[in-house]
């Protein structure tokens, strides 16, 4: 599948934004102390900025962005519609929480609503992909947990950075970040192994209904030039470099942020802030590569009509 830049930017930014929302909510619910209301507000504000930026980026890949509001109407059947609604509705508890916090203490009720909204949004994002039957690498039970754990990792690393900037306690947040990163790593490695092992359900024989024959191969394509299907579903540049890129994801996205976060705990102070920032930066870069691979490694059944023998 063609990795559209706008979709990658959207899922990375919104994953981090809603992950951060979830972390703030958890923070409030377990009663972790904040250095000041400003820490909470800055964290919430950054979450909102990332989520909003992600939503804007996602509209960039629409053919008719001025009609984007119509995408909120089909929640009964469409995960994309559900995602849009969850994404927007989650801004309400986020704003409420910020408003109540300005008055003094954060609200547990708003935190619960914020947590539910953030989790629902990221789960819907994962389900958009996991519900697509023609793409076996996406229609996998680890796709939704993967989106969730990676959002959690990004959110926890950002929450650590804010806690360090404001001089709040970071032990619990560091622990959450570590657990999330370890779980995301395990999930991703298991997922990669599963899609590598996975067998194609569809072949040129099932795609053409020519079950009486053992082997069906494309002799002549329908057109000599390219078309929308080949550009959108026929992307195969990255598969050649998949193993290198996977190592990059593990290093940049998971190992380096984990080491930097632990390092920040040891050093503390300004060096701690710098290391926490490094952890966030590396994680974002690693997540971008992971998202790119998620698209580039996905094979679509339509390619069976264009020379691929099995998907």
């Amino acid at each position: 599948m063609h990795p559209a830049l706008s979709v990658i930017v959207f899922t990375v930014a919104s994953g981090a934004g809603y992950g951060l929302f979830a972390l703030v909510a958890l923070n409030v619910l377990v009663g972790l102390p904040f250095a000041s209301p400003w820490q909470g507000l800055a964290t919430l504000g950054t979450g909102a900025a990332l989520a909003g930026f992600g939503l804007l980026a996602s509209s960039a890949h629409l053919g008719r962005p001025e009609r984007a509001w119509r995408g909120l109407t089909q929640w009964r059947s469409s995960w994309l519609s559900r995602e849009g609604i969850a994404a927007l509705v989650t801004f309400v508890p986020a704003a409420l929480q910020a408003w109540i916090w300005l008055e003094g203490r954060p609200s547990r009720l708003a935190a619960i609503a914020l947590l539910i909204g953030a989790v629902a949004t990221v789960a819907c994002t994962g389900m958009i992909y996991a519900s697509l039957k023609p793409i076996r690498q996406w229609r996998h039970p680890l796709v939704v947990p993967n989106y969730g754990l990676m959002a959690m990792s990004s959110g926890a690393l950002l929450a650590c950075l804010f806690a360090r900037c404001f001089g709040a306690p970071t032990a619990t947040l560091t622990l959450v970040a570590g657990v999330a990163l370890a779980a995301a790593t395990a999930c991703k490695i298991t997922y990669w192994a599963a899609i590598d092992r996975g067998r194609a359900a569809s072949t040129t024989v099932t795609a053409t209904g020519l079950g009486a024959f053992d082997d069906v191969r494309l002799l002549d394509p329908p057109h000599t030039g390219s078309n929308y299907l080949l550009k959108e579903m026929g992307f195969r540049v990255a598969r050649k470099h998949a193993s290198k890129l996977r190592r990059g994801v593990l290093m940049l996205g998971f190992a380096l942020p984990l080491a930097a976060t632990l390092g920040a705990t040891l050093t503390g102070g300004t060096a701690g802030v710098a290391l926490a920032a490094l952890a966030v930066g590396a994680n974002v870069a690693g997540t971008v590569v992971e998202r790119w691979l998620f698209f580039a490694e996905a094979t679509h059944t339509v390619m069976l009509y264009y020379g691929t023998r099995s998907v």
Binding site: M1, H61, L62, G63, R64, P65, R67, A68, R70, G71, S78, L80, I128, L132, K133, P134, I135, S202, N227, Y228, L229, E232, M233, H300, T301, V302, Y305
Partner: peptide
């Protein structure tokens, strides 16, 4: 139609073109 292209991804047969 907002041109999100998701329907073309959901069609196994490549019946939709943008």
């Amino acid at each position: 139609c907002i041109g999100c292209k998701l329907c073309s991804w959901a069609c196994p047969y490549g019946a939709r073109e943008f």
